[in-house]
């Protein structure tokens, strides 16, 4: 699946997007965030405080417990500050 990063998550990870192939025990958005954090380096820095990370699956907002099942595009970003 494709993972996108925005704002300071993008800066910390050092990538705008990447293809990932998580193991079978990564079921939810929160699982994926933990798996990415465990990679260390910029990923660990980006996901160090899961409470301030928001997510979208296929361009819709989701909660951390949302199942990844079938999603093609996952995005991680901070709380939004537009408007």
């Amino acid at each position: 699946m494709k993972v996108l990063y925005f704002a300071w998550l993008r800066e910390r990870v050092g990538l705008t997007e990447e293809e990932v192939d998580p193991p079978a025990d990564v079921h939810t958005v929160a699982d994926l965030a933990r798996w990415l954090q465990a990679r260390g380096g910029g990923h660990a820095h980006a996901f160090e405080n899961p409470a301030v990370v928001r997510a979208a699956l296929d361009r819709r907002h989701v909660k951390p417990d949302a199942p990844l099942a079938g999603a093609r595009e996952v995005a991680f970003f901070p709380p939004m500050t537009g408007g």
Partner: peptide, 28 residues
């Protein structure tokens, strides 16, 4: 406007030449 500010995926970063890193991300 109220819903745009909290759910439209936009993020503001300040450009402030006197600040560390020349400006920070605006916090929600």
């Amino acid at each position: 406007m109220d819903w745009l500010k909290t759910s439209a995926p936009f993020w503001k970063k300040e450009e402030r030449p006197g600040a560390p890193d020349d400006g920070a991300w605006v916090e929600a």
